[in-house]
Simulated assay, not measured.
Amino acid sequence: MPTAPRPATPSRLSRPSLTERRKAETQLEIARTAAALFAERGAAVTAEEIARTAGVALRTFYRYFRTKEDAVAPLLAVGVREWIDDLATAAAGPDAPPARAALERAARQALTPADAPAEEALHWTRGLLRAMPGDPALRAVWHRVHHDSEEALMPVLAKLTGAGPLELRLAAAAANTAMRVAVEEWAAGDAPADGPHGPAELAGRGLHALTAGLPELDRRKE
């Protein structure tokens, strides 16, 4: 999901080692570079160009990523993790809202650019999506990230509802699809990231439409 990485807070930290943090930072820096280049030049971008622009050796690039398209996955995955983290936070505690309200709030927050880096991340995502028709491998990365998002959503939704396995799967699929389609529709046009035609508004509308037949989302788990 195309949100800019937010500063880590103590509640979000799992105390990774210094080596792990450096590895993650390097991966994310390469991912930012790859996304910007794909947004600018489309499928013509090469792994060599990504590595050179990111300031790493080509062998370092291939230590982290199998292909040039794989390089954008960490940037997209950061947004997914933050969206699900926000939803998980909403699900915690006795005053948790119904799942439908929590989903819409988290979706709108994830897709509303709060600062310049977040707006830039959405700009890169628009460019990535426009490059995908000419690069099926890039589209495969996009769908893989969304598949992982759908899988990660189910246990979080289980904490918010008393829904059965089928309803949980349907709710996760509906929420994930609403987010994906909202970003794709926005990226296909020229509307700004905020406003009535931005991805946050489109996601809200999509969630309402796709989850209308799931009354379980309006019930708190007992």
Rank of each mutant, 00 (worst) to 15 (best):
A4D: 09
A4V: 02
P5D: 01
P5L: 07
P5Y: 01
P7R: 14
P7I: 11
P7F: 11
T9D: 08
P10S: 13
P10L: 12
S11Y: 12
L13E: 15
S14N: 11
L18E: 15
E20W: 06
R21N: 08
K23Y: 10
T26V: 11
Q27G: 08
Q27Y: 05
L28C: 09
L28E: 11
I30D: 08
R32F: 11
A34S: 14
A35D: 01
L37W: 05
L37A: 09
A39E: 05
G42Y: 09
A44G: 07
V45D: 12
E49D: 12
A51N: 08
R52P: 06
R52S: 13
T53I: 10
G55F: 09
T60F: 06
T60Q: 08
T60P: 02
T60Y: 04
Y62S: 07
R63S: 12
Y64D: 06
F65Y: 06
A71H: 02
L75V: 04
L76D: 05
A77V: 02
G79K: 03
G79A: 08
V80G: 11
I84Y: 03
D85F: 12
G93E: 07
A96R: 10
A101S: 11
A106P: 01
A107M: 09
Q109I: 09
Q109C: 08
A110R: 01
L111E: 06
A114W: 08
D115W: 06
P117D: 02
A118Q: 07
H123P: 02
W124R: 10
G127R: 12
L129V: 05
P133E: 02
A137H: 12
R139C: 12
R139V: 13
W142G: 05
W142P: 01
H143P: 01
D148Q: 15
E150G: 10
E151F: 13
P155T: 04
V156C: 04
A158M: 02
A158K: 03
K159Y: 09
K159D: 15
P165H: 04
M179H: 06
M179P: 00
R180T: 15
V181Y: 07
V183K: 06
V183E: 08
E184A: 15
E184M: 11
E184F: 06
G189I: 05
A193I: 03
H197Y: 12
A200F: 00
L202G: 03
L202Q: 09
G204W: 10
G206H: 09
L207I: 03
A212G: 10
A212Q: 14
G213I: 02
G213T: 06
P215Q: 10
E216V: 04
L217E: 00
